[in-house]
């Protein structure tokens, strides 16, 4: 591992003042320490933001405000999350292991890098890690790679479960930095790879996620997260979906369908939402939504199964959500 100097500022302004050009922020470290060991990340300076006042969870009735340093385990266990935002609690508990969730933070989760094996191996070409070096996944082992939002330069999936749920909930990311504070809707925060796969979010160097705001709505209260993996637990998604439905008088009034594990960013399936709105909830409508969710999919040699997986995961999640609703009477 490349040597680095370590600093732990106690207020945000000091954090970005100390973040030189060859420096990185660290919070939980579950992703960055791993990447430093792999030789993918090699900052000369680490600025530990663990001492900044960015913790805490608060609710003012219609918005949940979560500090960037809140641990995934604490967020999942918060009563407002477990009672009013089921998709968020389920996505958090479907991610990683209890040990990792005790270290991992909200802000770090949104900044985590892909699990693409070529990205994680500095001996291989990768446009995301080393721009213009090529993409070894295009003709290589891409069984786990994305079918949506890909480009000729990068097909790596975004690995987060949490971000998929936050997108379904219409969350906003609070950011601060040398240029002043700003708030960004999470659907604009993660960038598709296009010609610049090395650029994954809108954060400028020195900027810091300070928190996330989640609107508390009726839609968010009727939500569900389904994740399909290669083993029963502690694995990244082959395909996952966050669904939220507003059903009144036998008709879907509003819907959110967001995919994970199959796209280069957390992926809002707008066509699937359109297919549902105005229809009576049921097997036929859910199958149509599953089909619509695959719109724009571009499978490669070995990841075509993900297209079928999208259809079935969307339909099953919607069935589970409405069945649970029915059981509640």
């Amino acid at each position: 591992m490349r040597p680095f100097t370590y600093t732990r500022p106690d207020e945000p302004a000091h954090a970005w003042a100390e973040l030189g050009p060859d420096a990185m922020y660290i919070a939980g470290g579950t992703n960055l320490v791993d990447l430093m060991k792999c030789g993918v990340a090699g900052p000369a300076r680490l600025v530990d933001i663990g001492g900044l006042p960015l913790g805490g969870i608060g609710s003012d009735g219609d918005t949940l405000r979560i500090g960037a340093l809140v641990r995934n385990s604490d967020l999942a266990a918060h009563p407002v999350v477990s009672e009013r935002l089921p998709v968020l609690a389920q996505a958090l508990l479907a991610g990683a292991s209890p040990q990792l969730r005790n270290l991992a933070t909200l802000g770090g989760n949104l900044m985590q890098r892909t699990r693409c094996g070529y990205f994680r191996d500095p001996s291989m070409p990768c446009n995301k890690r080393l721009p213009e070096s090529g993409c070894a996944a295009l003709d290589g082992d891409h069984r786990g790679h994305a079918v949506l939002g890909t480009s000729e330069r990068c097909i790596a999936t975004h690995p987060s479960d949490l971000a998929v749920a936050l997108l379904a909930l219409g969350a906003r990311v609070r950011i601060d930095g040398p240029g002043g504070p700003r708030v960004e809707p999470i659907d604009a925060f993660h960038l598709p790879p296009g010609d610049t796969p090395e650029r994954e979010t809108t954060l400028a160097h020195g900027e810091l996620i300070t928190g996330v705001e989640v609107p508390l709505t009726a839609l968010g209260a009727r939500s569900h997260y389904l994740k399909v993996r290669e083993r029963a637990s502690f694995a990244f998604a082959m395909c996952s979906v966050a669904v939220a439905l507003d059903v009144r008088e036998g008709t879907v009034r509003d819907a959110r369908i967001v995919l994970g594990g199959v796209a280069t960013t957390p992926w809002r399936a707008g066509a699937a939402e359109t297919a549902l709105i105005g229809a009576p909830p049921g097997t036929a409508a859910f199958a149509r939504a599953g089909e619509a969710a695959t719109e724009g999919a571009r499978p490669l040699r070995d990841n075509g199964y993900k297209v079928e997986l999208i259809r079935r995961v969307v339909a099953r999640a919607l069935t589970t959500l409405t069945t649970v609703e029915g059981d509640r009477g």
Partner: peptide, 27 residues
């Protein structure tokens, strides 16, 4: 594994379980 994937390094930090391989001592 030294990569947070196997759990054999699990310890309690302030009473809560963590993978001690994925965090620096100075933190």
């Amino acid at each position: 594994c030294d990569l947070g994937q196997c759990g054999s390094c699990t310890v309690l930090l302030d009473g809560r379980r963590i993978t001690s391989c994925l965090t620096f001592a100075v933190m």
